[in-house]
Design a protein around this nucleic acid. Structure first.
Length: 569
DNA sequence: ATAGGGTTAG
């Protein structure tokens, strides 16, 4: 009876009857522990297990996997260690399932060293044991170690491949993720990708902005009947959003039935609108969410507020922010304050932004000082920028971008001594300039361009194109904005530094190597600079091209000499 | 009986 209720998920009935039985057999304990763990009543699982141990029964190979699952769920390594000790005493630690569950528990509780120790000491291992450890390594960023395990393991199943692919995606190695997905299809014919596999490879497309490749994978999913799963559709939405195709993201969103539209789906759509600067759509989607009877969460509000920020809807955004707690019962967190500081700062209300930083109940961190620094730069407020930058030099000393911004502002103000001091400071701390890079997708293949790079096979043509550009642009009314070039060098040299920015190289290659009218899609690892932004506008008009640039935090759609951001970014 | 997953501001 208990087992029947337990397996059907009626935990209440199962535990009620369980408590009326006076003579608990090990079998009965196992049934209840299994049910409680599977339905994530983790505390209760441990309570019942404890009761069992008190009665002198130490548990067997059917008890431990579920007790350990409860420990993993709670993420308390201390509990896990106690249970591990009991495993050893009971002698069931030698069991394959118990061993694998131990590894999983240590991985989920953040004890990778202990997980590796258990793995090394196991006498029998199966695919799952290897897979669990690979997951742990990927989570901790030990990509090389995970690769070693993957290479060494005897037989790999679809979970092994999927784990590697999603691990690469999570560690920002989109290239490797995409290549492994390909290799899996070609090499291991016995392995059948499922919906989780599709979901794991999509973030890699998103990372490098590989729209065509993403579409191909969408087609592949359709062909295999894997595209109807709501989670796959959500991953597709995110991919399309991050690859610059809002329309396709919206199509996926609409194809999820209203009853299956969970909060993640809504949040993804709102976030996509926000990244594209479509404030009106972000707000109206938020209102649709409320009408659909959903309860927004903290992520909904980060999307909504950043949407308002990117679109310049300062007061609308502030209103939402102030009503979060009372109207929507969502406690404003750090990231919401960061959005509001950005919202105010971007709009030039630096005083209010700075006030907020001091009034907030949470202390400001890197993203908030980063927002203030960006605001200081945009509105040429050196005082605020200096203040924010000094905080950032302490909080994220390795981030060269912060040095660059302040240094550029000093240069603009012709404060050469400060420029030199800053450069010396940067050098003494060993901060390396992070190279600018831009991806351009051509025929479904992403091409990488690095700032100042000359290694491209068609570098000569690219530079030739860029060399002739200024004259064409000057004829159309262009004045290069060299104010923020890093060095105190001649005007001409500054112009040259600007010319070698990676997005210019990429757009040049795009223009000379694709048919007229082809939309150019660029993905950048830094923020786009003012001069590149201006150049893109001119190129879109002179060459009649639509150019879509994704920089680190938003999209710019250039068309006929204008940008969708309205120069507000 | 154990394993892989989607949304987060600068």
């Amino acid at each position: 009876m208990v087992a029947f209720y337990a397996s059907s998920g009626d935990i209440y009935s199962a535990t009620t009857i369980f408590s009326t039985v006076s003579d608990h057999s090990p079998l009965l304990f196992n049934a209840v522990i299994r049910a409680l763990a599977l339905y994530k009543y983790s505390h209760q699982t441990l309570t019942v297990f404890n009761e069992m141990v008190m009665l002198g029964y130490l548990g067997d190979n059917f008890t431990y996997p579920f007790v350990l699952k409860a420990c993993s769920e709670l993420k308390v390594v201390k509990f896990g260690e106690v249970v591990h000790g009991l495993c050893l005493r009971s002698g069931f630690d030698r069991d394959l399932y118990v061993g694998t569950s131990l590894i999983d528990m240590y991985v989920k509780c953040g004890g990778l060293d202990l997980a590796r120790k258990v793995f090394d000491e196991m006498r029998v291992r199966d695919v799952s044991s290897w897979n669990v450890l690979i997951t742990g390594c990927m989570k901790e960023g030990l990509v090389d170690y995970a690769e070693g395990l993957f290479k060494r393991m005897g037989d790999r199943n679809i979970v092994s491949w999927t784990t590697m692919i999603s691990g690469y995606s999570q560690n920002g190695l989109a290239d490797k993720a995409l290549r492994l997905f390909d290799r899996m299809l070609g090499e291991d014919v016995d392995v059948k990708p499922n919906w989780v596999t599709v979901m794991s490879v999509l973030p890699a497309c998103a990372q490098v902005g590989a729209l065509d490749l993403g579409r191909k994978i969408h087609g592949f999913a359709k062909e295999k009947g894997l595209d109807s799963h709501p989670s796959v559709k959500i991953a597709l939405m995110a991919m399309y959003g991050k690859c610059g195709s809002l329309a396709e993201a919206r199509l996926c969103f609409d194809s999820v039935g209203l009853d299956k539209k969970n909060l993640v789906a809504w949040n993804t759509m709102i976030t996509a609108y926000a990244a594209h600067g479509c404030g009106v759509d972000a707000v109206s989607t938020f209102e649709d969410l409320l009408r659909a009877g959903m309860q927004p969460d903290d992520i909904t509000f980060t999307g909504l507020l950043s949407g308002c920020s990117h679109a310049g809807f300062v007061d609308v955004g502030l209103n939402y922010f102030y009503s979060m707690r009372e109207v929507y019962f969502v406690e404003p967190k750090y990231e919401h304050y960061a959005c509001v500081v950005d919202l105010l700062g971007r709009a030039g209300r630096l005083g209010e932004a700075y006030d907020l930083v001091h009034r907030m109940p949470i202390s400001a961190g890197a993203s908030i000082w980063g927002a203030l620094l960006a605001a200081g730069r945009k509105h040429k407020n050196l005082e605020i920028a200096e203040l924010a930058a000094k905080k950032l030099f302490v909080l994220e000393p390795e981030n060269s971008g912060n040095y660059a911004i302040l240094s550029n502002m000093y240069a603009e103000a012709k404060m050469w001594e400060e420029v030199n001091n800053l450069r010396a400071q940067q050098k003494s701390k060993g901060v390396k300039k992070s190279p600018g890079g831009t991806w351009l997708e051509i025929d479904g293949r992403p091409h990488l361009f690095l700032g100042g790079g000359t290694s491209h096979p068609r570098a000569e043509e690219i530079y030739m194109f860029l060399d002739t550009l200024p004259d064409k642009m000057k004829a159309a009314g262009y004045v290069p904005d060299t104010g923020f070039a890093l060095h105190d060098v001649s005007e001409e040299e500054k112009e040259y530094n600007l010319i070698t920015h990676s997005e210019k190289l990429a757009v040049a290659f795009g223009i000379i190597s694709t048919n007229p009218g082809t939309v150019l899609r660029l993905t950048k690892n830094l923020r786009i600079c003012v001069d590149c932004h201006t150049v893109m506008k001119f190129i879109s008009r002179i060459y009649e091209r639509e150019i879509i640039v994704r920089d680190v935090n938003r999209f710019h759609h250039f068309k006929d000499g204008h940008c969708s951001c309205g120069d507000y970014w």
